[in-house]
């Protein structure tokens, strides 16, 4: 009996210790996140102002703003989404609504998974050899956008597929039962219901694309350009690449540190907004759907 009490006590103590350690480790991960965020916010906040985001770089990029990098990233995000979003959504619709379960679907799924697993630097190599060299787009916004678009494709496809899967089958049956065709059902019934979740996927892929560096290294990114790009065949500066160059190989690394902090903060803000927006949308529409 006494022995049993001892054992129970030990079990309790072990559990308390284990849980305590696990909690501590988990909180330390959260702490890491907050250290990274608050450090960059702390250092970058004093740099960011209207001039910083609307002025050209000055004095070997140690002064001035990051306007062209912001514009470049905007172009790349827009360009990649113009390509990846329709293609990805169509692919997901086709996969989810039309292809029957079977070997083909399995292969396509596997390929999508594989594509998602390919490191971004390999996308960079591929984009360089196909778009820049083979198709003679040169280092250009076009080449960079297409490369980023391919990279974002699996993300778009996956989130769209999930959104479509979440649509209750009764909606489809009801519509088909009323004599609507498959495409009518998909476009008039399924897509509108899935729309909010698809948009969430779009926002998340925008967040992802705007921070990618490796794929644009050799397809579009320029170290410094005195002018803004005027066509899709121009090179462009981009935020992530800008941060990379001024923090590792600028003319004067020490003096351009503030600019680097500011650029890092701008990138973080983009990601934060994308995440908050996506989460907010999810919650908002989640509620709305439930209420109906």
């Amino acid at each position: 009996m006494i022995n049993e009490i001892k054992i129970t006590k030990r079990k309790k103590r072990n559990q308390a210790i284990a849980f305590w350690i696990f909690r501590l480790l988990s909180y330390s991960i959260v702490a890491i996140l907050f250290i990274i965020l608050s450090f960059i916010v702390y250092k970058g906040a004093s740099v960011i102002n209207w001039g910083f985001i609307t002025k050209m770089p000055e004095e070997g990029m140690t002064k001035g703003g990051i306007y062209p990098a912001i514009i470049g990233t905007l172009c790349l995000v827009a360009g990649s989404m113009v390509f990846a979003f329709p293609v990805g959504v169509l692919a997901a619709i086709y996969m989810n609504e039309y292809v029957k379960d079977g070997i083909i679907k399995k292969i396509i799924k596997q390929m999508t998974n594989n594509l998602a697993g390919i490191p971004s630097i390999v996308f960079g190599l591929f984009g360089m050899s196909l778009f820049v060299n083979k198709l003679h787009f040169g280092d250009s916004i076009l080449a960079g956008s297409l490369t980023l678009g391919l990279l974002a494709l699996p993300v778009v496809i996956r989130t769209t597929e999930e959104a479509l899967k979440a649509v209750d089958n009764t909606f489809r049956q009801a519509s088909l039962g009323l004599g609507a065709s498959k495409w009518q059902t998909t476009s008039k019934v399924v897509l509108p219901i899935a729309f909010p979740n698809i948009i969430t996927g779009l926002i998340l892929s925008i967040g992802r694309v705007s921070g990618e560096t490796a794929p644009i290294l050799f397809t579009v990114a320029a170290y410094f350009l005195p002018k803004l790009p005027t066509s899709i065949f121009d090179q462009a500066m981009a935020l992530p690449y800008h941060l990379y160059v001024i923090s590792t190989s600028g003319t004067n690394i020490e003096e351009s540190r503030p600019i680097a902090y500011g650029t890092a903060l701008v990138l973080i803000i983009i990601v934060l907004i994308a995440n908050l927006l996506a989460n907010g949308l999810r919650k908002y529409f989640g509620k709305k759907v439930k209420m109906n």
Binding site: S26, I29, V30, I32, L33, I36, F39, I40, L204, G207, R208, S210, G211, E212, T213, A214, P240, Y241, L243, Y244, S247, T248, R257, A260, A264, L267, I268, V271, L272, A274, N275, N279
Partner: peptide, 24 residues
């Protein structure tokens, strides 16, 4: 609370991680 924080950790661009690594 933790779930979105972990997602955020996944969303931070790798250059920013690199930069943080470089300066800290």
């Amino acid at each position: 609370i933790m779930k979105p924080l972990i997602e955020l950790l996944a969303g931070i661009p790798s250059v920013v991680y690199g930069f943080f690594g470089l300066v800290i």
